[in-house]
C-alpha cells in the first residue's frame, strides 16, 4: 500500500500544486488519478517517483519508510525524449540502465516493437515519429522494466484504437502479475474500462476516492468487431465492413470481450457511449465550482 500523509507541494511564486493530501492507495490494483488541468495529478506522480520533493507530508510504501527500495516504472506525459536518438538506441539505453541482460533485452525490445507495430520504425529518429508512435516507444520503455509500480501519465493520448486495446491488455497483465498500475488520464470513459480505484483531485485537493465497484450507474459501450459471430447472445448491426454491438455495463463488456476472443474475432474498437464515471466526476467538479 502507498500511504500518502498530509502531502503538500507549493512551487515557486506560491503556486499550490497539492494541498494536504492524505490517502492510502491499494496495492495490486489499477488506480486512476483524475482531475482537470492543473489539478496536481502529474505533481503527485512525480512526488511518488521521488523527482519532486514535497513541501510537507510524506509518502510511505508498504510501511517501509523508504520509497527508493521499490521499483518504479514511468511513462512521462507528452513523451518525446530526444529528437535525435533512434528508437532502438533509446530502448537499448534504458534497457541497459534498468540492468536487463543484453540478449534478453534485445528479445523483449523486438517483441514489444512488433506488438505495437512499430518494428519497421526502429531505426528512425524519435523526432521523425508521430506523437502516438512516441508514446508507444515510451510505453515500451516503461514495460521493459519489471517494476512493482507502473506510473503512466496520459498513456493513451494520441494512440490509435488498436494500440489502446493492446495497452489495456498489457495493463491487465501487469496487474495479474502482481504489480500496481497508476494512471493519470483525462479520458474518463476509457479509464472506466480498466481502473479499479479512482482518486479525484481538484485544484490540488483530494475531493474523493473510491473503488470502481462502488460507482453507481451503468456505462454503455459500442464495440466494433471485424466479423459477425455465430451466436444469438447479442444483437449486432452492420457498419461498413465491420459489425457493431452495444453493451450495457462494464461486467457485461468484460464477458463480451472474453466471448469474442474465444471465437478469434478481432475487436476493432471499444467506444463508451455513456459513462457513469464521467457523470460521477462531473457532479463532483460541479460541486467544487
Amino acid at each position: 500500500m502507498i500511504r500518502i500523509k498530509n502531502l503538500t507541494k507549493i512551487y515557486k511564486k506560491n503556486i499550490i500544486a497539492l494541498r494536504n493530501i492524505t490517502i492510502d492507495l491499494p496495492n495490486n490494483n489499477i488506480i486512476a488519478i483524475l482531475g482537470l488541468n492543473g489539478a496536481g495529478k502529474s505533481t503527485l506522480m512525480k512526488i511518488l517517483l521521488g523527482l519532486v520533493k514535497p513541501t510537507s507530508g510524506y509518502v510511505n510504501i508498504n510501511d517501509s519508510g523508504e520509497v527508493s527500495k521499490f521499483k518504479f516504472s514511468y511513462l512521462p506525459e507528452n513523451f518525446l525524449m530526444d529528437k535525435n536518438i533512434k528508437v532502438i538506441d533509446f530502448l537499448q539505453f534504458f534497457g541497459k540502465l534498468y540492468g536487463i541482460e543484453k540478449n534478453k533485452l534485445n528479445i523483449s525490445i523486438e517483441q514489444y516493437l512488433h506488438l505495437f507495430e512499430i518494428y519497421d520504425f526502429r531505426n528512425k529518429k524519435m523526432g521523425d515519429l508521430s506523437k502516438g508512435m512516441n508514446i508507444k516507444v515510451g510505453l515500451i520503455q516503461a514495460l521493459l522494466k519489471k517494476a512493482d509500480y507502473y506510473l503512466l501519465d496520459e498513456p493513451t493520448e494520441g494512440l490509435d484504437p488498436i494500440s489502446r486495446l493492446k495497452m489495456r491488455e498489457i495493463i491487465f497483465k501487469l496487474k495479474s502479475e502482481g504489480s500496481t498500475v497508476i494512471i493519470n488520464s483525462h479520458i474518463l470513459a476509457e479509464l472506466e474500462l480498466f481502473a479499479d480505484f479512482y482518486v479525484i483531485l481538484h485544484k490540488g485537493e483530494l475531493i474523493d476516492y473510491k473503488f470502481s465497484k462502488d460507482l453507481s450507474g451503468q456505462a454503455k459501450y459500442e464495440v466494433e468487431i471485424s466479423e459477425l459471430p455465430k451466436d444469438n447472445y447479442f444483437n449486432y448491426m452492420k457498419k461498413d465492413s465491420s459489425w457493431i454491438c452495444n453493451i450495457n455495463g462494464i461486467e457485461n463488456l468484460k464477458d463480451f470481450i472474453t466471448h469474442i476472443d474465444s471465437m478469434s474475432i478481432k475487436i476493432l474498437n471499444i467506444k463508451p457511449i455513456t459513462s457513469s464515471l464521467e457523470e460521477y466526476f462531473n457532479s463532483l467538479i460541479q460541486k467544487q465550482i
Binding site: G50, M81, F94, L97
Partner: peptide, 13 residues
C-alpha cells in the same frame, strides 16, 4: 534540461 533525467533517476542512478 535533459528530459531523460526523469527516467534515469527512477532507475538505480
Amino acid at each position: 534540461n535533459n528530459p531523460f533525467n526523469k527516467l534515469i533517476l527512477i532507475s538505480n542512478i
